[in-house]
């Protein structure tokens, strides 16, 4: 028997680590991986609440998040390859053409 709040706190820890990694990492692929970590933390919250209220819809949400994450990963990695071809670097500090 585990309280649902334990699962929610675990998801909060994972999400915060994802936020910290997103801000601190300098490699564009590592930044992208921390976004996936945050998506996974939110998925855990959805499933915990689905268990709490005995609703299937929480799990349906997770299913759609997974589908969108798969599409996002494919397009994002293609953009990373295109950026690497154009600038031959993966450091986010050197990819700042749109910065004011």
């Amino acid at each position: 028997m585990v309280p649902i709040s334990y699962y929610l706190v675990l998801a909060a820890i994972l999400f915060s680590i994802g936020v910290a990694a997103f801000l601190i990492k300098r490699n564009i692929i590592a930044v992208f991986m921390s976004i996936e970590l945050m998506l996974n933390a939110v998925n855990l919250t959805f499933i915990a609440f689905a268990h709490e209220w005995h609703q299937v819809s929480g799990q349906i949400f997770v299913f759609f998040v997974m589908v969108v994450a798969a599409a996002e990963a494919a397009v994002g990695l293609a953009i990373i390859i295109a950026v690497f071809r154009a600038r031959s670097t993966l450091n986010v500090d050197q990819i700042d053409l749109m910065k004011l």
Binding site: M1, P3, I4, L8, A12, S16, V19, A20, L23, E52
Partner: peptide
């Protein structure tokens, strides 16, 4: 580093505070 770690720590503290203070309204798995 200056903005990232404190920001993530504040976020974690806030979320944990909410979940722990409201744990009475959540059930058991």
């Amino acid at each position: 580093y200056v903005a990232g770690f404190p920001g993530a720590a504040i976020l974690l503290g806030l979320l944990t505070f909410i979940f722990v203070s409201r744990r009475g309204s959540f059930g058991q798995a």
